[in-house]
């Protein structure tokens, strides 16, 4: 397996300052993720999982520590640089609110390509492929409100993967779904990971975490344990 480091953080900190209180969401996180890994982040509510994921996904900036992406220190990168890295390397899946209501499924999925400046024909082709992979091609002209939660989430994954990102970040992707649809989504993420995409996923569900190579347990903004998912490794070895 490719051992090249994709993400490396050192003493990553995040503090939220409001009028009255200062909340420490991350209190020194050291985390390294290599290319091709499937990492699950777990922990009790409010421990800082989403905060960490957002920083890893360059949606938010840390208040302290070092953050390297593909070996490059981008702790203090500008908003524009972050946007550029996001559109070239990252794909996101959230628990809900994944799609733009005013765009059809097809248009939603094509959005990252539009911002990348991909040609119309190429976009059409890649969007079609992504939709077919996720099994929602027959819904291409529907608006998000006309889809079920599972279909919406699959569309979201299609959008997250259409630009062939090297890293997919997913924040509780199955949180709003029933177990059948949840398993479907996890299968899709696994498939992507097997095709070479790095996946970092926040989850509350131990069964979802089972799909990952490695499980990072967060508590009060710090990593308490990091476990290799032995079963998965064994399965892969076999």
């Amino acid at each position: 397996m490719n051992k090249e480091l994709l993400i490396e953080t050192k003493q990553l900190q995040k503090k939220y300052v409001t009028d009255t209180v200062e909340t420490t969401a991350l209190a020194g996180v050291d985390l390294s993720i290599t290319k091709g890994e499937f990492v699950a982040i777990m922990g009790p509510s409010g421990c800082g999982k989403s905060t960490l994921l957002n920083i890893l996904g360059l949606l938010d900036s840390p208040s302290g520590g070092v953050f390297k992406f593909l070996g490059e220190d981008i702790t203090n990168a500008s908003e524009r640089q972050r946007a550029k890295i996001r559109k070239q390397n990252l794909g996101f899946v959230f628990q809900s609110f994944n799609l733009i209501d005013e765009l059809t499924v097809e248009e939603n999925i094509g959005l990252p390509l539009a911002y990348l400046g991909v040609s119309k024909a190429e976009t059409e082709k890649r969007v079609m492929e992504a939709m077919e992979r996720m099994g929602i091609a027959h819904r291409r002209n529907h608006f998000p409100q006309q889809l079920s939660g599972g279909q919406q989430q699959r569309a979201a994954i299609a959008r997250a993967t259409v630009s062939n990102p090297s890293l997919i970040l997913a924040d509780e992707p199955t949180g709003n779904l029933d177990s059948v649809h949840g398993r479907e989504v996890m299968a899709l993420l696994t498939e992507l990971n097997e095709a070479g995409t790095t996946v970092v996923m926040v989850t509350h569900s131990p069964s979802d975490a089972e799909y990952a190579h490695r499980i990072v347990n967060l508590f009060d903004g710090q990593i308490v344990t990091e476990n290799l998912n032995v079963r998965k490794h064994v399965a892969e070895l076999l």
Partner: peptide, 16 residues
């Protein structure tokens, strides 16, 4: 707001 957020997530620049 949500639309703006999602567009930024997929890499839109503020100027766009």
């Amino acid at each position: 707001a949500k639309e703006v957020g999602l567009r930024k997530v997929v890499g839109a620049y503020r100027s766009q």
